[in-house]
Design a protein around this nucleic acid. Structure first.
Lengths: 181, 181
DNA sequence: GATTGTTTTCAGAAAGCATTGAAGGAGATC
DNA sequence: GATCTCCTTCAATGCTTTCTGAAAACAATC
């Protein structure tokens, strides 16, 4: 029997979302589970996921936990059923907000802290007796500061965009398009 | 002998940049080479990189090529020297522009094409004799469209930000901030 | 066109990651 | 408290990516 077009669409999307995740440092299976839940019209349980994606119980469990940690999916209880069900956030702007917040915390902040420490070290460098070439220190300082400031600006920008987004994509799109011109 | 603070700062930054790359789907070594070149005050050759990072010639060669492909570093010739030297782009806004352009081409566009195809499939689904639940089709359509539009807005946004770049991202930031309020 | 210095390639080795499956745990139900 | 159902954990396994090192290719110089 031919799979229905709607099934084909789903499986195509899931496959692509998985590939995409892989190039983004997210495991293929985790991204696929996310895609499956994002499309689902009702909460799914672990067995649903195992069946659909042909993965082991262990893998499903681990990846689901990780997705819950990221805040991209939620556990939901179905009354009168002992199984646990899962449901994805479907508001893409909320998703964006969640992902950028987490990535900021896990990845951008550590970089910024490191840059601060590096800048402090440069100050120490100036204080040492055997002075390093002062213009080299100046160059390093600029390189460190440039990235630091970039992170800072991006933090602010992403915050605003996440907030703006929820009010509706279209107005924001128009606003930006006008700015570009 | 104690390493000088400026060396410490460099090695700390390189290490962190490498770890960061790893969580971003960029190989640790490639990110480290990039960091090394980003800080360097003059072009470096393959041997410099091998020495500093303790990697093999093969690995250095491969990763350097990849970085050139991404447009993040350039080959430069040193007059009267047969070796090839490399130099990183140091304008962070230019880096941002380069990276987002490439990622868009490699990753966002394919997703958008897939979403278009998925939407077409849903149209086909409506046409088939054994009709799938129409409200399920409607839900899928919305989910696909939401991501599509999100990508669209993000494309525009990143374009604008890259253009605005150093010249001042502030006006765009203000505009969006005003919109949020 | 041989020599020398440099880069690229690639098969095999190593490292890093994700997945499996079975054992164990935690709760609900009888 | 025994049983049943489902969830989690983790050591072992398999897969993918990355790195190595030597050989081949290339290019400049004599």
């Amino acid at each position: 029997m031919e799979p229905m077009p709607i099934e084909q669409a789903r499986s195509l999307f899931i496959r692509r979302w998985g590939e995409m995740g892989a190039t983004w440092g997210i495991s293929r299976t985790m991204a696929e589970i996310h895609a499956l839940l994002y499309l689902a019209t009702k909460p799914l349980c672990t067995d649903d996921i195992m069946d659909h994606l042909a993965v082991s119980r262990g893998s499903a469990s681990m990846n689901l936990r990780e997705l819950v940690n990221w805040g991209l999916i939620q556990r939901v209880h179905q009354r009168g059923d002992r199984k646990e069900y899962f449901e994805a956030e479907t508001d893409v702007w909320q998703m964006f907000e969640t992902i950028t917040r987490e990535r900021r915390r896990r990845e951008v902040l550590p970089i910024m802290e490191t840059l601060e420490r590096c800048l402090e070290m440069l100050d120490d460098a100036r204080a040492t007796s055997d002075a390093p070439a002062p213009e080299e220190v100046a160059t390093y300082r600029k390189r460190f500061r440039d990235i630091y400031e970039f992170c800072d600006v991006m933090n602010t920008l992403f915050n605003s965009v996440a907030k703006a987004g929820r009010r509706g994509i279209a107005p924001l799109g128009k606003l930006i398009a006008k700015f570009v011109r």
